[in-house]
Amino acid sequence: MHGQDGMGDLGTLWHPTGAACSEFAVDTILRIIRENKDDVELVAIGPLINIAVSILQYPKTMAKVSHITMKLPI
């Protein structure tokens, strides 16, 4: 019904070529914040659990985040 690719065989699907990240999302968020000397803005496009865990476990590091922008459902 929806073709081989599930999208009507439009041929527009991107096929990843890299490997999955071996680092946990919370660790990645914290590492990027710690490595960056400038303000960091997080843009959340999905569930907020990794940001929430980062805030709860590492509040001093997360205090360096200037903004958290969230995509909300319409």
Rank of each mutant, 00 (worst) to 15 (best):
N36S: 09
D5S: 11
I33N: 00
I45L: 15
L10F: 04
H15Y: 06
R31K: 10
N36I: 00
K37T: 02
M1I: 08
T61S: 04
I45C: 13
W14N: 02
E41D: 12
I74D: 14
P47K: 10
G46V: 04
L13M: 11
M62Q: 12
I32V: 10
I33Y: 01
G18Q: 08
R34H: 00
K37I: 00
K60M: 09
T28C: 12
T69K: 14
V65K: 12
F24H: 11
V53L: 13
C21R: 06
G11I: 01
Q57E: 15
I49K: 07
E23N: 05
D5P: 02
D5L: 05
E23F: 01
I68Q: 08
I33G: 00
I45R: 04
I74E: 12
A44C: 14
I29M: 05
W14K: 05
I32R: 05
T12D: 07
L10Q: 10
M70I: 15
T69I: 14
A63Q: 13
P73K: 11
R34L: 01
V40N: 02
H15R: 06
G8Y: 06
G3L: 04
N50K: 08
W14A: 01
L30W: 02
V43I: 14
T69M: 10
A44M: 09
M7Y: 13
M70Y: 15
L48I: 10
A25S: 10
H15C: 02
R31Y: 02
A63L: 09
S66M: 10
N50I: 03
L10K: 10
I51A: 12
F24M: 11
Q57W: 13
I33D: 01
P16N: 07
H67S: 11
K60N: 10
W14M: 05
P16A: 08
K37G: 00
E35P: 00
E35T: 06
E35I: 00
G46E: 06
T12L: 12
R31L: 03
L13Q: 12
G46W: 03
S54I: 02
D39F: 01
R31G: 06
V40Q: 02
C21M: 04
P59G: 07
G46C: 12
T61A: 08
I49L: 06
K37W: 00
P59R: 07
L10N: 09
I51E: 05
L13W: 00
V43M: 03
A63S: 15
L13Y: 01
A63V: 02
Q4N: 07
L72S: 14
H15A: 03
D9M: 05
T12I: 05
D27K: 08
N36M: 00
A52R: 15
L56I: 12
A25T: 12
M1Y: 11
A52K: 14
T17M: 06
E35W: 00
G46D: 09
L56C: 15
